[in-house]
């Protein structure tokens, strides 16, 4: 982790929200309440938010926290890449969609049955047009996270990378960690604490 230029980090872990390793919110509610609260408090009006499934909302909110003090307008958006993984893919939404098949299949739910839609929503929100890598692993693995960052930065023109883990299982069980990485060490100003999710491991 030491040779990475981490500019910012954000985590949402079952109502506990951390920015750059420091706690900013400690909510004890289900995700539907937590997500609305965070949206109202931290996000500019964005009506598409309400149409997203829970996985996308989780990824969206984590990105909002990640980039809240970062000027995304000052960077080349074609060179911002995303590499995000999780364990449960879109299982929660798959089951919701499957329920609709029995009566009337819902296109608005079906569209969220692909995990990379989460990357798409973030790209649309900020206009990022770089590389997209969406992967599924049994468990969050710090080494895999770094490995993916490294191969992406070394094999593409990526200047900034949003990388991490966004996993939604249920209303009371969800977890995310996103890092903003800069390729150029000069841009690095990460003075914060190590993200919580990475501290526990090691």
């Amino acid at each position: 982790m030491n040779d990475l230029n981490i500019l910012n980090s954000a985590e949402i872990n079952n109502g506990k929200v951390l920015a750059n390793g420091k706690p900013v919110e400690n909510l004890e509610n289900d995700f539907s309440i937590v997500s609305k609260y965070l949206y109202k408090k931290y996000c500019k009006a964005y009506i598409k938010f309400f149409k997203m499934d829970s996985l996308c909302k989780l990824g969206f909110l984590t990105t909002e926290m990640l980039l809240k003090d970062f000027d995304t307008e000052s960077i080349g958006k074609n060179e911002v890449a995303l590499a995000i993984g999780n364990s449960n893919s879109t299982k929660d939404t798959d089951l919701k969609y499957y329920e609709t098949i029995k009566t009337q299949p819902s296109p608005a739910i079906f569209v969220y049955t692909l995990p990379n839609i989460l990357l798409g929503e973030i790209c649309i929100r900020y206009g990022f047009k770089g590389q997209n890598l969406c992967y599924i692993s049994e468990k969050f693995d710090e080494n895999e996270l770094y490995e993916n960052i490294k191969i992406l930065l070394n094999n593409s023109t990526t200047q900034y990378l949003i990388s991490g883990w966004v996993d939604y299982i249920s209303e009371t069980n969800y977890k995310s960690l996103l890092l903003l990485i800069g390729k150029n060490p000069k841009n690095c100003n990460f003075a914060a604490q190590k993200p919580d999710m990475l501290n526990k491991k090691a």
Binding site: K36, Y39, I47, F49, F50, K51, A108
Partner: peptide
């Protein structure tokens, strides 16, 4: 309701 525009 149908379009999940919850906030509205």
């Amino acid at each position: 309701d149908h379009l999940n525009l919850e906030g509205l």
